[in-house]
Design a protein around this nucleic acid. Sequence first.
DNA 1: GCGCCAAATGTGACCGGTCACAATGCTCTG
DNA 2: CAGAGCATTGTGACCGGTCACATTTGGCGC
Lengths: 371, 371
Amino acid sequence: MPHGTAPLETGEARDAPRDDLSSEVTPGAGTVAASAEELGRPATIRDVAALARVSHQTVHRFLQGYEGIRPTTRERVVEALAALEYRPNLTARSLTTGRSMRIGALTHELDQFGPSKIIQGAAQAARDAGYVLDILSLDMGDPEEIDQALQTVTQHDLAGVLALASTDHMAQAFGAANFRVPAFLAGEEDEFASHHPSQLTTVGFPALIDHLAELGHQRLLHVAGPTAWSAARNRARAFETAVAAHGLVSVGVVHGDWTARSGYEAISALPARLDFTAVVVANDQMALGALLALRERGVRVPEDVSITGVDDIPDAAYFSPPLTTLRVDFVAQGRRAVEHLLARIAQREPADDEALISRLVVRRSTGTVAP
Amino acid sequence: MPHGTAPLETGEARDAPRDDLSSEVTPGAGTVAASAEELGRPATIRDVAALARVSHQTVHRFLQGYEGIRPTTRERVVEALAALEYRPNLTARSLTTGRSMRIGALTHELDQFGPSKIIQGAAQAARDAGYVLDILSLDMGDPEEIDQALQTVTQHDLAGVLALASTDHMAQAFGAANFRVPAFLAGEEDEFASHHPSQLTTVGFPALIDHLAELGHQRLLHVAGPTAWSAARNRARAFETAVAAHGLVSVGVVHGDWTARSGYEAISALPARLDFTAVVVANDQMALGALLALRERGVRVPEDVSITGVDDIPDAAYFSPPLTTLRVDFVAQGRRAVEHLLARIAQREPADDEALISRLVVRRSTGTVAP
DNA sequence: GCGCCAAATGTGACCGGTCACAATGCTCTG
DNA sequence: CAGAGCATTGTGACCGGTCACATTTGGCGC
């Protein structure tokens, strides 16, 4: 208790000298705590008010950044706040305002690279804005669980709700729910429905197909993600479009479920005679499986067949061979989702989206077509 | 408004017939809402009480599962709850009890497989217990950010705090913080300090080294994780111990940072002449990098050198060649952490830990030593 | 020195559960 | 049938901010 208490004690002596005697009769009672330890519990604005000899409302005003407080008063409040180590109680604040500093995040497949990166970006952006992310990890497929999770959400009065990683299941459950608070569906949206093609579609895939065309490839296979994911549909469409634009040939589209296993199986299931020279896989993990399947078939990459991924997961640079792929900025996606949600919460227009760059990363899994 | 309102209206007529006239004079005032729509806002326990013609306390008791409520009373409450679609307001509850149904989770490196899986398990266990996980993703290394995050945590009065993924930085920040609520440090603890060896140490590594010994390997290299991670230290120690127990030789320990890149660089940096026949890598991603580095040196796996990982990430089965590794159940780790924390919150002993199985998964990256 | 007005500050209720305590009602004994 | 005694239900305050409104204070012109 250094300088902080000094002005108080002199102040007390000045303002209320008549009470000094009676306060000596009942030493503790009526005494205001002058330090956090003395209080033994978190300080409230009333504790602070008592110490600063102002009303709780004045303390409140100070905390709200209200300017019209006399400098002398302000000083006492500042000192009291510091002396009592005041921390606002967000729960109490939420109760009256009906809003909290928490954002609910519905997610699933958290172990997937994309979703976990999106969460990372979202958590970061939320924290920067003073919010916390409440994670609700769902097992899509169990409708009861979804229902239960949505109930939980409504009880926790959140500032807003975010759905990360967008499958149709999620979109559907999300659309059906009435959150009573702002909500935002993140991840790659369905470009077909929204007419908002991403850079991945407008820049990434064209660059990728361009790259393959320059290497002499003409017949391409696409290994797509599960159709329930809008991201998978976007990528498949982007592939088809880019191929058509270059006058190349798509020999077909086979579907996986994003896992390396499914990529492996997709390639293994192909007939013995391959009628393509390059495989465009919708994500890096499936590409990994495809690499192994090709190797086991005795197909050399890139000498016989070139292969490409999407995402550019950190491991992709160390596949055998290192994978040519399209980089996707998932962290930015998560961040952007939170920004949109915050804008909706504040009822303002969202800041202009930073363009989600999608860059072609050329490595050794692509090469010229054997003559 | 089907059968739900009927008993009420007859009841009103019976109990308070004298009020009927006056209530016709002021139609709306004093009328109790009989349905959620009529209310226009979330129903409170007092709304329910009014509709059920009981005190708010009786409703409260019912919600708490109190048995001593007369069946007739109980029935009215049940109906009122349903008619008004009552949802408890957890914020208000938190304010009085000082506890919430939310668990703070401090984490970092969310993009790593282990941490993200642990989060997944924790989120799942939390939800099953009716809790929500508040994620605070930290960038260790920025002490100010850690400090700020801890402040955030204390303002959000949480039921407990969990630290997931344990580096020394995290453990230190965690230990220094005064959360005023139960806290639990999850992930692999420092076995050296705690004397609680995990199955990974007692079963996993011995089995792994056993496997290599049977294949004829005698000289082993260890690629460890960053020393700031207790998991890395545990694994390195487990390696040394198991090697010594088998009378094999450890030719050295090199350190990476869990990434494939670091595994690649660790192997690339070795002198031209390799004096080992097997590499035990502390996680699968570094093993991936090591695989590529060996291939580029012209070393065949497993013919010339065997290689093993730890974690058994889904991709490991599709490396070239598929990786022999130790499976680690991260989801269970996260779940267990939450269970321990919940036990601490409830001030009871934690349920017996389900043993975290650690199983050797033999694939094609290990083979007999060339004669 | 007075009065007026805006600036500065204070008062009390409220958000929606929860708690401690009070007040009924009912059953059963003598 | 009184009254003890438990079972059932009700009352009012409280948690810690926030809000609407009331009150006091200071500065200024006359």
